[in-house]
């Protein structure tokens, strides 16, 4: 079922990496997301941008995976930024309190502009 998500890491400078996600963020994506986060952190990047798409899907298991990333990012003193074009996604993130631990923007361009 992990083929329901595509995760890619892009390094844009010596401090920032973007994790591009495409698909369903569920329990089946845990390894892909955690591997991508580790890869994004390998270069001591202090800014990690998660880039979601408009039509992506996330459930509570997917949110739990992201809370795990938040936990690790705090230990590493990293700044987490999330580009989330979907208003539904943003609502769910607010509902569970994720917005208190990551800066949320509506597009990747806006997110990159904050670096």
């Amino acid at each position: 079922m992990s083929d329901e998500i595509q995760v890619d890491v892009q390094y844009i400078d010596d401090k920032t990496a973007i994790i591009h996600l495409e698909g369903d963020v569920t329990t089946f994506s845990e390894k892909d997301i955690n591997d991508a986060y580790k890869a994004a952190s390998d270069n001591d990047n202090s800014n990690i941008i998660f880039n979601f798409r408009e039509n992506d899907y996330i459930n509570s298991a997917g949110i739990a995976i992201l809370i795990g990333v938040v936990t690790e990012a705090r230990k590493q003193n990293q700044r987490l930024i999330m580009a989330i074009p979907s208003s539904h996604f943003q609502k769910i993130f607010r509902m569970v309190g994720l917005t208190q631990y990551a800066d949320i923007y509506s597009s990747l361009e806006e997110a990159k502009a904050q670096i």
């Binding site: 739990a64 809370i67 938040v70 936990t71 705090r74 569970v96 309190g97 994720l98 208190q100 631990y101």
Partner: peptide
């Protein structure tokens, strides 16, 4: 109600 702060703090 889930307590994200407790989750983040382990």
């Amino acid at each position: 109600v889930p307590d994200i702060h407790k989750m983040v703090e382990g």
